[in-house]
Computed example of a mutant assay.
Amino acid sequence: MTLISRATVFAAAMLLSFSALAAAGGPVQHAGTDLSDKASLQRGAQLFMNYCSSCHSLKYLRYSRMAEDLGLTEDEVMENLNFTGAKFGEQILTAMPAEGAAKWFGTAPPDLSLTSRVRGGDWIYSYLKSFYIDEERPLGWNNTVFPNASMPNVLWELQGVQRPVYGGVDEATSEPLIDRLEIATPGSLDAAKFDQAARDITAFLEYAGEPIAIKRQSIGVWVMLFLAFFTFLAWLLKKEYWKDVH
């Protein structure tokens, strides 16, 4: 098998695997995050620390690095984003004991440092928006993107309570299919504002997964400009060398 054909087979397999995952977990929406928007990253950090960090850690990110990248002072971080008593240069860890978490949730909540690199920003954004009330689940919540997730909807006060609207039946399992989710009890934010909140959290997790991405993207623009300028100089040099060749 040639290298090209192997690459084609691999790409096709990856595409089929992704399609199967998307079909099994429900539709994925486009997040539309912008890592150059520091205001969005700051809001995402605030939302994550207030609603998610009690269970989930970011062990590959330090408070000091987050402050530097997001344009925050040490006082702002320690007073508003640090709830564990950790030092400024320490990692962002959760105060929840692993044994207690496993007992309460069935398994310890995972570290989210690399979630965006594994799942992608669109998946995180869609997951945050796709919780619905389900009395049959131990914690009373389910999710269309990640069915039977053990995590409760920690953002329900912002989003409100969603209930499923069924349409059709799954031919394989004979179970009703969820057509869409609709708000049964409104939250403190309307749909547009909650979408922005979910987008901000997603952007922050994308940043946490690759903190260098912000600087890499800014440097990338200058690299492309340099390459374009160098290409132009090379063209002028080639033209000069070959001007007397017929």
Rank of each mutant, 00 (worst) to 15 (best):
T2Y: 04
L3E: 06
L3N: 00
I4L: 14
I4A: 13
T8G: 10
V9G: 12
V9A: 15
A12T: 13
A12K: 10
A13G: 13
S17D: 11
L21W: 12
G25F: 07
G25R: 05
G26W: 04
Q29R: 08
H30D: 08
H30T: 14
A31N: 00
T33M: 08
L35R: 00
S36A: 14
A39M: 06
Q42H: 09
Q46T: 15
F48A: 01
M49Q: 15
M49R: 11
N50Y: 01
Y51T: 12
Y51K: 14
C52D: 05
C52F: 10
C55P: 09
H56Y: 02
L58P: 03
L61C: 08
S64C: 06
M66Q: 04
E68Y: 09
L70T: 04
T73E: 04
V77S: 03
F83Q: 03
F88E: 05
A95D: 13
A95F: 04
A98G: 04
E99A: 12
E99G: 13
A102W: 02
A102E: 15
A102G: 12
K103C: 01
S113H: 06
T115R: 06
R119E: 10
W123D: 13
Y127F: 15
L128M: 02
K129Y: 01
F131T: 12
Y132V: 10
D134Q: 08
P138H: 05
W141C: 06
W141S: 11
W141G: 06
N143A: 02
V145L: 09
S150T: 08
S150R: 13
S150L: 08
P152N: 08
V154G: 08
V161L: 07
Q162R: 07
Q162K: 10
R163V: 15
Y166D: 03
E171G: 01
E171H: 02
E175G: 14
L177E: 11
L177Y: 05
I178C: 02
I178M: 02
R180V: 02
E182M: 00
K193F: 05
Q196C: 09
D200S: 08
T202V: 02
A203C: 10
F204W: 02
E206F: 03
E206P: 00
E206D: 05
E206N: 03
Y207E: 05
Y207Q: 01
G209A: 01
E210N: 14
A213N: 11
Q217C: 08
Q217T: 10
I219M: 12
G220D: 08
W222C: 11
M224P: 10
L225D: 07
L227M: 11
A228V: 03
A234S: 01
L237T: 09
L237P: 05
D244F: 01
